[in-house]
């Protein structure tokens, strides 16, 4: 066979020190090639991360002045519905007075709102069960037994600060990161 005789020639001629030098060079070359491949891979991978135009829309500002007590609006943030609801004092107090041991995921109501702005509840409007959008943000919607939100898909019910009171949803509605820029303006994201 052609290859066996050729490789035999190589073996006979190769001196040990030449071989080790060659091996070192080959190792360096291999390492260089590996670095090159990794460096090439990164732009491809990074191109699938959110692009600059997507990131530019990653925060929204919401003016709260038109939302009267008892009203709620839905805004879109990062492609998700965000519930912004102006609670009446009665609605908030009901939630605050609920004993924690009655809750599926026991979180105090005060931890669900921002200090000094407890009349505003801001939630990601996605049911923690299977991702449907619960009803209840409009006054005409069914709000369930606890006056918050009602998911039409599988009947999960949430209270006025978005804590789950009736399954199958396992968790409270998630809170988006947000901050009050002034008393009448929030920035989500």
């Amino acid at each position: 066979m052609a290859e066996s005789s050729a490789s035999a020639t190589v073996a006979q001629h190769g001196q040990p020190d030449i071989v080790s030098k060659r091996d070192f060079l080959k190792l360096t070359l291999g390492a260089g090639a590996a670095i090159g491949v990794c460096a090439i891979a990164w732009p491809f991978i990074d191109s699938m991360n959110p692009s600059r135009d997507v990131l530019a829309l990653s925060s929204v500002e919401v003016d709260l002045t038109p939302i009267t007590e008892g009203m709620g609006i839905t805004v879109v943030w990062r492609g998700k519905p965000i519930f912004v609801r102006h609670l009446t004092t009665k609605e908030y107090d009901e939630a605050a007075n609920t004993p924690l041991n009655q809750l599926i995921e026991p979180i105090p109501a005060a931890d669900r709102v921002k200090p000094n702005h407890h009349q505003w509840i801001i939630l990601i409007g996605i049911c923690t069960h299977l991702g449907c959008i619960p009803l209840g943000n409009k006054p005409t919607d069914p709000r369930g037994e606890w006056g918050g939100w009602f998911c039409p898909c599988h009947g999960s019910q949430y209270d006025t600060v978005g804590r789950v009171r009736h399954g199958p949803a396992p968790l409270n509605l998630w809170l988006p990161p947000y901050a009050f820029e002034s008393d009448t303006k929030i920035k989500i994201g």
């Binding site: 990164w42 732009p43 491809f44 990074d46 191109s47 699938m48 991360n49 692009s51 600059r52 135009d53 997507v54």
Partner: peptide, 28 residues
């Protein structure tokens, strides 16, 4: 192709979006 839009109204701009907004889009 993940960012290109084959529509006469959007094709040119989608290529420019690749050039300007997609990470390393200009390189690709």
């Amino acid at each position: 192709a993940m960012n290109y839009v084959p529509n006469t109204g959007l094709a040119f701009d989608s290529v420019q979006r690749i050039m300007r907004d997609v990470n390393y889009g200009w390189l690709l």
